[in-house]
Design a protein around this nucleic acid. Sequence first.
DNA 1: TTAATATATGTAGCTAACTACGTATACTTG
DNA 2: CAAGTATACGTAGTTAGCTACATATATTAA
Lengths: 154, 154
Amino acid sequence: MNVINESGILGISTRLQRLSEQLRKDGFQIYKTNGIDFEPKWFPVIYTLHFKPVLSVVELATEIGYTHPSTISLLKELEKEKLIRSKKDKQDERKRLILLTEKGKKLLQQMQPVWQTMVVALTELTNTSNNIMKAIEEVEAQLNHKSFMDRAKK
Amino acid sequence: MNVINESGILGISTRLQRLSEQLRKDGFQIYKTNGIDFEPKWFPVIYTLHFKPVLSVVELATEIGYTHPSTISLLKELEKEKLIRSKKDKQDERKRLILLTEKGKKLLQQMQPVWQTMVVALTELTNTSNNIMKAIEEVEAQLNHKSFMDRAKK
DNA sequence: TTAATATATGTAGCTAACTACGTATACTTG
DNA sequence: CAAGTATACGTAGTTAGCTACATATATTAA
């Protein structure tokens, strides 16, 4: 058995998490140096609302692929920043509809060039012989087909 | 600008984190169904102590690539489980030396076949056209050479 | 039309890493 | 050898997701 492989692949979970943290931290700094007060974790919410301007909490959660409690906590932060607001759905009183504020829409416009820069930088960074975005997608597809758990059951 | 790409790559941090969580959760279950009371996050510590049986806290932290506070909290848990123990370094009174207990050594032996199974399963899972372990290594190398931050500065 | 079930939202508390900071011991240098 | 610096360890508090549970409204079925 190959020691390096063993310790490498069994530590994959930690490796993924730490790479995630590093990119997020840099992401935050990049917004900051561009004079934008924005956190990378808010991106999926704001970006989704750009294309689907009115969504309920759960619809939004589904759209960004988070659980609803995680989404609620993001929404709380974004509401505090006055980047989004919400209103009751008249048809269904259980629902809270989420919308960008004017401030949110304006910020979104300001962020466009920064996003463009980040996309270029990230594309350059991940344009290696094994593309990490594709690799993630492939592993996710593999997991969808058969979980790690099931694969280890023999 | 490609919308799918943009939302994809700018959300890379979250994707990495969630894949990490999923693998860790399954990892825990796999130990469990094999009758082993062990958490995936403990792996680097136990595995390292297998090859380097006596290490100080900071040496161990460096070895596994964690910060020392993170390492200390893992060590606390492992001490509670009686899988490791510690003793003062006589040469340097600041240091606390970490060792596997007999229970720890025994568990390590019991885990070998499970690790083997997991390595096989993970290798199968990640053996896609873009290999995720290699991709992580390549991105880490790229980052080492020039950070995401620096790449976005133009 | 009430009872049972389903859906939408919210709250509380967990996890696994981190940074910032504090204290104790060791080392170095004037 | 005393003062300043470096190293080792520890604690406190943060983060960004999560699960489990609670409550309110809506829908369905007897």
